[in-house]
Design a protein around this nucleic acid. Structure first.
Lengths: 266, 266
DNA sequence: CCATTTATGTTGCATAATGTAACTATTATT
DNA sequence: AATAATAGTTACATTATGCAACATAAATGG
């Protein structure tokens, strides 16, 4: 005789409400916004259910409802999402490609910048990572992830980058042993150099290239051929350059000669 | 008919209660949630049994029951985001009182916490300030202000505070000469001590009290009489305690004896 | 052997969560 | 401004879960 009234209800484990809540908040922390329709599809529940979830979270003050979804009500993240608009798809794909190079348990350095931020997003549901960063936004977002340790490299904050620069940050870098570093850059010059806007930035990235087990530059295609004043010293020690589409042939060849691999996302 | 007492039936199926408990807790630690239906299937026992298991574990304080399963109860989870809402008016008035003590050109240290965040808000339109802070949110906010320099004290990020703690932050403090520091605290004990939750926090604040030209503790009235485990050493060197209403007479007198002034906002 | 305890299964009903549908409001498009 | 498309609301149906009471079966102890 089979027992069926209470036992094995033929039902494939609908997610628990707290599970949904957890993931909703994680997505929110990562992206700044969530959409009801997307979430409903993702969890395979009705939109009404998601609405009820969001209502609860909103009542607890964890998010703010907006038409079609919810946002963080932190002014901090808002500005962020705005800036991110350009090339968002390209950056997201670079982020995924970069995240594929990271295994659980690693120590990861994330530079400041919107492209490295995309890497942080792509690492959102990883477990057991240690993140080192100079970026305030990245630190704030990643520290909300469970099972992720975050080290903020301190120093004077550059308002344009919203990240620490200067001597303190430079020095702090040397304290860490990082497995893999993802660095931004101002441009990818026609002769295959990654260049930067400021002396401090270039020096900081240079040190990280030299220190990290593997260093990758993440650069979206808007940077191709762009010239900024400072070459990043020792750039050729980097393991690779992650881009959203293949750069001009001349650049590729120059890179090949120097050493770093060209990794085209997606 | 069958010998079954020794018959190791299909691996995890039909485990003893303590075995189930062990695995339940392991799963909980890994995923943050467990579902009754899933566990019942996994152990091949009835849902009622799992419910009884969870009830026991909940009675022992090892998890928190929710509809359909259980979660680990996270005191930190929403702590920061929730706390922000509480006592907002009181904190704002404390913020204004604190800001009144700051003159343009000063070097100001802002501790982590929601009350110090209110101080940051109150300083929003000041010119020519230098802000030092361990708080990610404060750094992010203040660096968007024109004519404000921000120094972020780096270190490991405590997710509950969303601020740097630990040895790096401690050390970084000593590099600065600050005119005025605004510090948070866990509680204001009946005998007029400001106390803290963690050793690191207490030490960090203690150093700041000793280092800063003037140090003020900002405490909303919910902290009055509250006991937290660690006294902040050298607290009596602080210039004052800024509160939103006058504390109990005993506390006021104890404070007077020790030295710090009591400043009631508004 | 029986009585007792302990763990588990079963059942029925109360409660809570989710789904559905009809209708209204908002946003986007022309 | 009119329209279509998308999202929000409300009310109610459906399903899943919680709970308590009782049933069953093995273990325990005399």
């Amino acid at each position: 005789m089979v027992a069926d009234s209470d036992m094995s209800d033929s039902q494939s484990a609908r997610a628990l409400a707290p599970r949904r809540h957890g993931e909703i908040l994680r997505r929110l922390a990562a992206d700044g916004t969530v959409s009801i329709t997307e979430l409903a599809v993702h969890f395979d529940v009705s939109r009404q259910t998601i609405r009820r979830d969001l209502k609860q979270l909103a009542d607890r003050g964890q998010l703010e409802l907006v038409h079609g979804g919810a946002t963080l009500f932190e002014p901090t993240e808002a500005a962020f999402t705005e800036r991110r608009g350009e090339n968002a798809a390209a950056k997201a794909s670079i982020g995924r490609a970069a995240a594929a190079l990271v295994r659980d348990g690693m120590v990861v350095f994330l530079d400041s910048g919107t492209t490295t931020l995309a890497v942080a997003h792509a690492l959102a549901d990883r477990k057991d990572l240690t993140i080192c960063t100079t970026s305030l936004s990245i630190a704030l977002q990643m520290c909300r992830q469970p099972q992720v340790r975050v080290h903020m490299l301190g120093g004077e904050i550059d308002p344009a980058e919203e990240a620490a620069v200067g001597i303190d940050a430079l020095e702090a870098i040397s304290h860490f042993r990082v497995d893999v570093a993802f660095l931004g850059g101002g441009g990818l010059s026609p002769d295959g150099d990654v260049t930067d806007f400021t002396r401090n930035g270039a020096e900081q990235r240079s040190r990280m290239v030299a220190t990290a087990g593997k260093a990758y530059f993440v650069l979206d295609s808007s940077k191709f051929g762009r010239l900024t004043p400072l070459r990043i010293p020792r750039f050729e020690l980097a393991a690779g350059v992650i881009v959203d589409r293949r750069p001009q042939e001349a650049i590729c060849e120059a890179l090949k000669r120097k050493g770093p691999a060209v990794i085209v996302a997606e």
